[in-house]
């Protein structure tokens, strides 16, 4: 199996690569990994990972700057049904649009839009809700039979850093939520594609467990 981590100028992808490599080695899986921005490599790969840090409009621009990439992703994921993972802004790009800085369209694979996390109120210790939502948080698993959350307990925590959250009425696409002031979708997905708001590559053993689930998932 061949895994392509898509490099479109959004930050350092080494962490994502390192975390996948570790999971592949430990679990003795037969995968090769390529970090690439080449359309031919992406279309040859069996599975696709789209990371993303920074702002939604910047990431969208990075994708658009690679001629044909967005069309190719649509084709590979929606029509050819290749397994796909979006991480952080890579996940955000999977929905209709985001209001970060200016309204920017995503791929529209899932329903909803990203808006700023609400600040009002105080947390359980009387502290303000700081934005970004930064640090380790639990999941509330909504779709307990999804293979992607196998063996993951609600006591485990994942590393989040983001300021926008998915607002959507489409509940069946939400696999897990987290809570920071209000409910925030943490794992979303449909058919052969999932997206995570947290960073599995920075979430210690829990993150490794998630990556392993995704690698062995056969949608």
């Amino acid at each position: 199996m061949n895994l392509a981590i898509i490099d479109y100028g959004s930050g350092n992808l080494r962490s994502v690569e390192n975390a996948f490599k570790n999971s592949i080695n430990i679990n003795k899986l037969k995968f090769s990994i390529e970090v690439t921005n080449k359309l031919t490599s992406i279309s040859k790969a069996d599975h696709l990972v789209l990371p993303g840090v920074g702002s939604f409009p910047d990431c969208k621009k990075g994708l658009k700057d690679i001629d044909g990439l967005i069309d190719l992703l649509n084709n590979e994921v929606i029509y050819k049904k290749k397994k796909f993972l979006g991480i952080c802004v890579g996940m955000q790009l999977m929905v209709d649009y985001s209001s970060e800085k200016k309204r920017t369209a995503g791929f529209g694979w899932l329903k909803g839009n990203f808006k700023k996390i609400e600040k009002k109120g105080l947390d359980y210790l009387g502290r303000d809700y700081k934005i970004p939502h930064m640090g380790w948080n639990n999941l509330q698993i909504e779709n307990k039979i999804h293979p992607i959350v196998e063996n993951i307990s609600e006591n485990e925590q994942y590393y989040f850093v983001h300021s926008y959250f998915l607002e959507s009425k489409q509940n069946d696409q939400i696999i897990a939520n987290t809570t920071y002031n209000h409910k925030i979708p943490a794992i979303i997905g449909k058919d052969n594609y999932v997206g995570v708001q947290f960073h599995p590559e920075k979430s210690g053993n829990s993150g490794q467990k998630f990556l392993y689930n995704w690698l062995k998932w056969r949608p």
């Binding site: 080494r14 390192n18 975390a19 920075k202 979430s203 210690g204 993150g207």
Partner: peptide, 11 residues
């Protein structure tokens, strides 16, 4: 940093 990032999966 690069050596740490290879095995240390926290921020």
């Amino acid at each position: 940093i690069s050596k740490t990032a290879e095995t240390c999966f926290v921020p």
